[in-house]
Structures are given as C-alpha cells and as structure tokens.
Design a protein around this nucleic acid. Structure first.
Length: 958
DNA sequence: TCGCCCCT
DNA sequence: AGGGGCGA
C-alpha cells in the first residue's frame, strides 16, 4: 500500500529525501560491488533501487533529493568540535556521488544541494514552508528529523530490514514529547555521532522524566531549584553549554529560500536513458524495474498506459483485518508484459484452502466469549494502519507497538528503547502501566470466529487466567508489561518462539512474521493470525514430542521465562559516582594519549579508524604488515600490534588507547545513562539467541563486563548491591570440563575431578610425563590452552594460533594428547558418529542442534560442523545445568525467606542481591543448589564444584 | 556490512 | 565454540 493511502492523504504530498544519509547508509550496508573496471557501485546500486521502488509504489508529483553541500556550516562556527570525530569520507563513496546525482535526474527527479547548512536543515526548512499547503513526507532515518513532525509532516524510513512510517501521534506515544522539544531533549542526552557530549549522567530515561515536567531547557534553568538534588548536580556545570548544544540539534527552518515547489515537480521517466544508465554502471538486475514503472514512463515508446488501480487482487470479506501486502506476488512481474487490463486472473484460490473466519472487533473484555477451560491463541498483529487507528486510544507509555523482531514488544518504543521499557517496567511514571495493544487477535479453538481486541491488556490478562492453554509468540514480552500476566499459571503457556527455537536453535529468526509465513503450508489464510497460531502450535507440539523435546520445553524453558522476566525487572545496581569518576579519569587519559599519538604521527588522524591507523603504521612509519583481514585490508588487530611492540613507541600507546576507548564507549559512557532512578540497570535476557542453549544478554550486555586486565576489577567494582544489601556471586568451577569428564568417562579426568585436583596441572603432567608437583608454570599454561581447545572441538588451527606454535606442532600436540587420553578420543568419535547418523547432536537433557554439514563434501565445512557438534554437547549441557540451577534458585523457599533475588547470569555464574545480614546463608544455599543439580534426574559422575563470594561490589564478590 | 574487542 | 556493542 502506498504511503498516500496509508496516511489517507487527499492532496499530493511533497516528498523530501535525505539523500546524503541514504548514500552513506547504502555504502556501508553493502560491501564491495563494482563495475568490471573496478569502479565502485554499491551505494549507487542501492540508492537507485530505492528510488525505482519508490517511484513504482508512490507515483510522486513533488519530490526532492537533498544532498549535503560541501564545507563547513553554521554549526561548526558555534561549536568547533561538531562532527570532529568523523573521519574523511571514503574515496569509493565520493566517486559514487556524481553517478547518484545522474541517477536521480535520469529518473525524472530533482535534487537540491544544501548550502551553508546541512541537508536536514534544508529539509526542515522546506517542510516548514510547504506543510501549510500540502502534506510533507520526509524520507530519512536521522533522528534529528523527528523535530519536523507535525499534523501534516510525516517521517518515513524505508529501512534496510523494516520500513517505518512515523506520524506526530506516533512520536508523542513513543517519547511522551512534543516534536518541538526534540532538540532540547537531544541537547541534553547528547549524540556521539555528531560529537555532542550532552549532559553527563543524563540518559534518555532521566531526560524523558525531566521533560515531562519541565518542557524546555529554559524551564530547566528557570526552575532549577525545583529539580531533584541529584539532577541539579549533573546540570550545574552545563546550564550554559546545553543551550549551545541545542543550537546544534535544532534544524534551521528558513534556509534554502531559493527552492520552490516547482523545482521538485517530478517528470516522466525516460526509459531509454534509464536503461543506458543502468547498462553504463552494469546494474543489470535493476533493468526489470524500469518496465515496472509502467505509467510513469515518458510516452516515447508505445507501451499502453494501463491505469494501475491499487485495489486490485482478491478481496477478502473479513472485517477489520488488514490485507497482507505480500499476497500480491504477481506472476506478471517479468519485464515487457503489460498488465492485462483489469482482469484479475489468479482469483481462484488453491483447492482445499480453508476459508477465512469472520473477525469480530471487540474492545470490551465482557464481549468476549468465556474462555474457561479452552485453548486460546493470542497474537498481536499490527502495521502502521493499525497504529493509526490506535491513536484514538489514550496515549500510553508502553503501548503495544508492532515490533520487527519476534511478535510484538508490549513496551516498545522506537527512539528510546531502554528508557521507555524501564518506565513501563518500574511503573514509576504517572501512567497506570496498563499497556494497550494495537490489535490483539485471539482465537478460541473450535470457535468459528476470531476476535480483534483493542481493549485493556490488564483486563485481558485477567480474562485469560481461566483459559486452559494459551498459545502466543512471545510470553516474556507479555510478562514484562506488568499487566497481570504473571497470574496465568505457568503450565498453561505455549510459547511459539521458544518451541521454534528448541526445534531449530540455529534458525535465528523466531518472529511471528516469520512463523506466520507458514500459513500457505498449513493451508490457512493469513487473515486469521490467531487461528494460524493455534495450528502452528499443534504442529510444534507434535514435532517437539517427536524430538523428545517436550520435557525440556515444559519443565525447563517455559518455567525459566518468568525467572528471566523477574531478573530483568529487578536489574542490577550501579555506583553512579564510581562510574563518573572512572569515566573522568579515562577521558583525561584518552585526551593525553591522543595528543601524544598525534605528535608521534606528525599530525592529527582518527586513531579509531583501522584504515587511517594502518596508513600511519605501514606506510608512513614503514612498519611491516603482519596479517591481512578477510576483506583484504591490512590488519591492525591486537595480535598484529603485539607483534610490532617494541618496533615503535606508538604501538604501546595505541594498544592502551584502544583499551581505554573500548572502556569508555562500551561501558563507562552509555551504562550510567541506562540506569533508572534507583540506579539500576535492566538488561534483556534473550532465551532464543544461541545455537547451543546458552542465554545471551543485551541492551546492555551484562555478560561481557571486563574482569581481567588493569581495569577489570575497577570496572566490576562499579556494579554494586543497593544500600543494606550484598552481592553474592557463585560460579561453577570448570563446568565444561566436568561435563566432558562425565560424558566421556575418561578415567584421568574423572579421577582428577573426584580428587579435586588442579585440572590443568593434571593434564600437563599426563601430557608432558612429569609428576604433578613438577609441572612448570609454562607447562600448565599450555595444558590450560589445550583444555580450552578441547571444549571448542580442538581445531589444530586455533590451537597453533593460541600457543603460538606451528600448525604441525599443534597437530602433534593433539595426537599426543589423544594417545594419552583414549576414552576422550573415543567420545569425540562417538559424537561425530551420532551426528552423522542423526544429523543432529543432543545435550545431557536432550536439547538438540542440527549439524547437517557434518555430511558435507567440503572439508572446511565438515570440520567446522564437527567442532560445533562437540562444543554443542559440552557447552549446551553446561547451559542446561545452570538453567536448572536458576530455576531451583528462583523457586527455593529458603532463599525467598532470605529475601535473596537473582540479578544476573553469566553462563557459569549466578549473582544474587541479598540483605547484608542474610548474605552468608544465601551464598551457602545458592552454592548447594548449584552443585546439587541433577540433569535428567541423575547426578553427574563428577562433583559439580561451586565457588562463591560475598561483597558490596561485583569485584569483591567474585 | 565489517573489523575489532569485551565476556564465558 | 558461543555471544553483543561500537565505530567507520
């Protein structure tokens, strides 16, 4: 559906495209594409493709492609550091600028180059000028553009993966702000890509809260005494600078006065010229799109200009349900064949297709039939059309919005994910926290009707507690809305995403969008998503049963959902002051290093750019390259730099710079901004992310907080328990090697663990034929590396690299190792044989991963699959064990009475927050639970050793 | 998108 | 071996 239709526009809109941004994005989105003479065409290709599709879909009357002019603009005068962190535009991109402008013109479109300002300013100015007379649709992704939104100004991002149309109402829902407040908001939170620091310690979360009370920077300044003391402190030194920042984040509205609407009137496309152009740049795949333009083509040829009626194709008689756009994959898409006049030929549906069910719109819970004892499917569907309808509902934070991944995120927001989520979670806003969905489809098994529900989520949760069984694509998304869904008994849930994950953990995509694509296969119409969900669930249940995965699903993964939701909600406390002080020191040190490095280099350059760094090291300083990257560039990786250490003093400085920069950009700067009012950070645990069964953590990732090196301890010390509490950390010792000992029954390993020996020393003594007490530290280190290799499937490649020995030496090492530990070798061979026979491997409790490549004729692929098979058995079984431990921990009565709360899981470690006086007892209990795990009901043949610690900070506890 | 680098 | 985040 075209944008005009989706927005219900009656006047021809003015489309303004942020051309520079798309060229830039296209250039990085697609690597190396070139004409046969080597001329780069990647950005040209993508931009041209976007334009062709846009023309076909929208038939614009007024369109402007706006490009950034060269040189500095007023922002650099205000603030010299503006975009100072940007490196020079890559040459291959520069080369494509001219061809892109030709493409634009050839397609009958017009471009404008902003002068003395940026493309965004030009767009904002044109939008401000023309919105009074017609709708303006801005095509772009830059968040600055959001300030242009108005009743008559829309923002559209065709996106790489997911397109997104934003109206001013959407913006208000998502942010709680008015577009006019956006520059103020941005000025405060900062923008690293433009080198605007913002107010330190103020993240989107805090800022949103401030701006709901104080609408502008002026209000913040004028009502300064009424701010919370903590906030006052942060703003104190920035009351002036924030106004400067706002001048940077505010787009001009009176630039580009010379441009009038007539400039942007779209001309017909000259098919011949376009074809020539595409041929010139060898963009053959786009040729077919020319004829698809149909009526837009200039009447040079004789092609019949068929009216293209947007409402073609079969219409279903269901009420209220959106028609899926994908259904119109036409058989007549090939070039040359003009569309047959008004004759929808493929009207006939395939035989046997079940009829669409009627959809009943309901917004009051009492109008739904009783679901007691019944099977129900609940699916949130939504597209922009639905969103538009939704704006009639009261604007709520945490409103259900269509989410590109998985089903729907009930606390989704585009601009401010973390903050909005947290507000929804903490219930700390003035809102009720009762999120309202756009369109929840529900279907009661056996019913002849499907319901499209737009009422209160809380009411729905209450209603649903009576259901026998609830099928939905993402249970955790419901639980984290805190709208009463925890009242639904665990055993009643069936999580479609989880089922799909257990059936194929390597798939990566468990979105409802993806799952529902099976409508055809199941012979069901996509118009009834909830009924489809029930059908998919039935299919999944059968397949889980067939794969012996039901027990894993029902008794581990589904119960774990709630545990994870709770952990996310609790969050972990950070010491803000420690973060701030650390950041300050690191920033000072970075500044110092930058100066020194630039001095040594004889001029300023971007140290973060691997390209510019490589140029300095290998061209100007004449050092010898030691390695290459896959892309053919000269590597500047740590391994290479370490080899060059001592050859030039800057190497050390650069390594130090990298470490500090990583620390700053990944941890010190963003994390304090993600904390809520109580100073707690809420990660998201992803249960469907890994191929082995481990969890992952994101937004932020709390599973990769530095621990080693000069800064590790200090970094971890910044994560603390709240006042009056302690952190308890307990981790499995060598869990993967213990699993390996158990699975292989290798006597050496079994004995070592049963006697609680140092496993690396023991391995070394076997490997090097020396008594355990005579093992040298060096030998132990080598043995440790081999033991790691063992867990990863023992590739000689990796081992050689790790031990810094030759490939042949590594191979000999492995051979020697297996000669001494025969049972281990037999176990590896067994895993491989099983994988070959079944096409999959399973963990201790039957989690399954497919490894089809084990049959591959390609040696590389086959070896890779073999390593994956082995690692999956070991890493996956370890993951099973800690997941069981998490469940036991969360359900333990003693820990509950000690008020111990799970806050983190880091693969082999669990972190609790406990009132200080209970810490010791909780730690002992936790360690008992963890070491007492019996996967599959039987204890392992080696003890599961657990170490624990207690402390105010994570470092101390670890 | 890739390269780099943090974690188990 | 399995992850996630940042900057170009």
């Amino acid at each position: 559906m075209s944008l005009k239709e989706r927005l219900g526009l009656t006047t021809e809109p003015l489309y303004l495209m942020d051309g520079s941004a798309f060229i830039f994005r296209a250039f990085y989105a697609m690597q190396s594409m070139q004409r046969s003479d080597g001329f780069p065409t990647n950005a040209l290709f993508i931009v041209t493709r976007i334009l062709l599709k846009f023309l076909k879909d929208e038939h614009p009357t007024y369109f402007g492609f706006i490009l950034d002019g060269k040189g500095k603009n007023f922002r650099h005068d205000i603030y010299p550091e503006y975009k100072a962190n940007r490196s020079a535009t890559p040459e291959p991109l520069v080369q494509q600028l001219e061809p892109v402008t030709r493409a634009v013109r050839t397609l009958g479109l017009h471009l404008a180059i902003s002068e003395n300002c940026e493309a965004d300013d030009c767009i904002a100015s044109l939008a401000a000028r023309y919105k009074k007379e017609r709708p303006v649709i801005i095509i772009g992704a830059d968040k600055d553009l959001k300030q242009c939104l108005d009743d008559n100004v829309f923002l559209w991002d065709p996106g790489v993966k997911q397109e997104k149309l934003t109206t001013v109402a959407d913006f208000r829902e998502e942010t709680g702000l008015d577009p006019a407040q956006w520059p103020d908001f941005q000025a405060v939170i900062g923008d690293s890509s433009d080198n605007i620091p913002g107010v330190p310690g103020i993240g989107p979360k805090t800022a949103a809260k401030i701006f709901t009370e104080h609408g502008s920077l002026e209000a913040i300044r004028d009502h300064f005494p009424s701010l919370a003391p903590a906030v006052q402190k942060k703003f104190a030194e920035h009351l002036d600078t924030m106004f400067t920042y706002r001048r940077l984040t505010t787009l001009a509205t009176s630039e580009c006065a010379n441009l009038t609407l007539d400039h942007f009137r779209v001309s017909p496309v000259d098919a011949e010229k376009t074809a020539l152009f595409l041929r010139e740049f060898e963009l053959r795949t786009l040729m077919k799109d020319i004829s698809a333009l149909g009526p837009l083509l200039a009447p040079s040829g004789h092609m019949a200009s068929t009216t293209n009626d947007p409402s073609d194709g079969p219409t279903t008689l269901t009420t209220g349900s959106p028609k899926p756009v994908s259904a119109q994959m036409s058989l007549f898409d090939s070039p040359g064949s003009a569309a047959p006049a008004a004759a929808p030929l493929k009207q006939t549906e395939p035989a046997g297709t079940q009829r669409s069910l009627k959809i009943t719109a309901v917004d009051d819970i009492s109008s739904l039939p009783d679901c007691a004892g019944r099977r129900v499917a609940l699916v949130a569907v939504g597209d922009v059309l639905h969103r538009a309808e939704c704006t009639t509902l009261p604007p709520l934070l945490g409103m259900a919005a269509p989410s590109p991944d998985r089903s729907v995120s009930f606390a989704d927001s585009a601009g401010l994910p973390a903050s909005e989520n947290q507000q929804a979670r903490n219930g700390s806003t003035t809102q009720t926290g009762d999120a309202e969905p756009c369109a929840l489809h529900l279907h009661l098994a056996g019913d002849t009707c499907e319901y499209r529900y737009t009422g209160s989520l809380t009411a729905l949760a209450g209603y649903m507690t009576k259901a026998e069984y609830i099928v939905t694509p993402d249970v955790k998304a419901l639980l984290t809305t805190r709208t009463g869904w925890r009242a639904v008994a665990e055993s009643r849930w069936f999580d479609l995403g989880l089922a799909a994950y257990l059936l194929d953990p390597e798939d990566r995509d468990y979105s409802w969008r993806r799952l529902s694509a099976r409508a055809d296969e199941l012979d069901l119409p996509a118009e009834n998503p909830a009924r489809l969900a029930l059908a998919i669930a039935g299919d999944f249940e059968r397949r889980l049963q067939g794969g012996d995965l039901t027990d894993l699903m029902r008794n581990l993964e589904i119960p774990l959902i709630r545990v994870l939701a709770d952990m996310e909600e609790v969050g972990i406390h950070i010491n803000r002051a420690a973060f701030a002080e650390f950041l300050n020191e690191v920033q000072r040190e970075l500044d110092r290093l930058t100066r020194t490095i630039h001095e040594a280099a004889g001029g300023p350059f971007n140290i973060r750019s691997a390209q510019q760094l490589g140029d300095l090291l290998f061209n100007r300083l004449g050092l010898k390259p030691k390695g290459k990257t896959k892309g053919g560039q000269i590597s500047t990786s740590q391994a290479v730099l370490e080899k060059l250490e001592g050859e030039h003093p800057v190497i050390d400085l650069i390594l130090e710079y990298r470490k500090l920069e990583k620390l700053r950009s990944t941890y010190l700067e963003p994390m304090p901004k993600m904390a809520d009012e109580q100073g707690r950070i809420h990660t998201t645990f992803n249960q469907l992310a890994t191929a082995t069964g481990r969890l992952s953590s994101s937004n932020p990732n709390l599973q990769n907080i530095p621990v080693r090196g000069k800064f590790g301890p200090r970094m971890r010390a910044c994560f603390t328990a709240r006042a009056g509490c302690k952190l308890v950390s307990a981790d499995y010792s060598q869990i993967e090697l213990r699993v390996l000992a158990h699975c292989s029954q290798d006597p050496t390993l079994l004995e070592a663990f049963r006697n609680d020996e140092d496993i690396h020393s023991r391995t070394a003594s076997v490997l090097f034929d020396v008594p355990a007490q005579d093992v040298t530290p060096d030998q132990r280190r080598n043995a440790k590396t081999i033991n790691f290799g063992l867990v990863y499937g023992m590739g000689p490649q990796k081992l050689a690299q790790e031990l810094k020995i030759s490939l042949n030496e590594a191979k000999a090492f492995i051979e020697r190792y297996f000669a001494r530990l025969q049972r281990l070798k037999a176990f590896y061979e067994q895993v491989e044989a099983d994988a070959r026979e079944n096409g999959s491997v399973t963990t201790l409790i039957g989690r399954r991963r497919h490894v089809p490549d084990i049959q591959s004729g390609n040696n590389q692929l086959q070896s890779q699959a073999r390593r994956q098979a082995i690692n999956t058995v070991i890493q996956g079984s370890a993951a099973d064990i800690i997941k069981i431990a998490m469940l036991r921990t969360a359900q333990d009565a003693q820990l509950k009475s000690l008020k111990a709360r799970l806050v983190l899981q880091v693969h082999d470690e669990l972190l609790l927050e406990v009132p200080a006086e209970n810490a010791q007892a909780a730690a002992e209990r936790l360690a008992d639970i963890m070491s007492g795990v019996r996967p599959g009901g039987k204890p392992l043949d080696v003890p599961l050793k657990v170490d624990y610690g207690i402390g105010s900070g994570w470092h101390e506890a670890h």
